[in-house]
Amino acid sequence: MQTGDPMLELMGWLLKATLQMATPLVLTALGGMFSERTGVVNIGLEGMMLVGAFSAVAGTYYVGSPWLGLIIAVIAGGALAGAHAIVCVKFKGNHIVSGTGIILFGLGSTTLGLQVVWGKQGLSDSVERIPEVVIPQLRDVPMLGTAFGSLSPIIYFMFIITALSWYVLYRTPFGLRMRAAGEDPSTLDAAGVSVEWTRIVGVVLSGALAGLGGAYLSIGFENAFGKGMTAGKGFIALAALIFGNWTPIGCFLAGLFFGFVTGLQFIFPILIPELVTLTNLVKILPYALVIVALAGIRRSIPPKGIAVPYEKEVRV
């Protein structure tokens, strides 16, 4: 309830906004990580997010349950990533070319899809959204209530998926294979594991996670799909991936940092109303902070085998 100190409430809200803005970024960045750690550059994340966001709403509309919509979004994102995987891994195409193709296709097809499914331009009908998880005991606590009282379940998924990604990548044989496919594919091949399949699985996983991130935007956070609604979040996720140095924990922290600075730009004009004429400059702040932070922290070192198509050695 709005009984607490407004300043305290605002801080609580900042925490919540951080989580809300970070969730799609973290999920998509983790997806990108799976792709790039196996050696396939994936700049098509934006397109996969859009397709995920769209199919979540379309699926919910057709089937009637947002949970099934979520699953459909994951499948659709994975399917689009499958096309990327076929082009990049099977046909050894240029990863960036294919990625830009995916982005363009995602942008165009989802907007057309609005017309196919609803006969509308630009904005879909509203559908049921995924119900939020409410913690009644926490909700009346002044600051924490605002922050954690009522959150979308996908935000909790985000934490679980981060932990799971870390475990899979560093503690399972499959994760070892993935890392090997990105760092030193010939060793992996010598060990008798198919580099191609490891990479394909990595790319499809990335699409599935990006689809989940997009679905969070459309049916977790909002309740409809609008043309181009991801508004560049796929690219920001790509930046978060690089910022996080291609590790699960790094992606998670980078996503939270991006979410935090985005939330910060909403807080400033409320605290200092005089800034209203400087709104556009305040909005630069998050971007500037990211550059400063990244320049101050460390060098970014991508996986060694990235963007290099693996050619099996052929004995004649």
Binding site: E222, A224, K227
Partner: peptide, 21 residues
């Protein structure tokens, strides 16, 4: 009064955050 701008005509997420704030 508080006057704020989303800086985007399509990004519903920003609108929701501004409203929340």
């Amino acid at each position: 009064f508080t006057v704020q701008y989303t800086g985007s005509w399509i990004d519903t997420a920003i609108g929701q955050n501004l409203g929340d704030a």
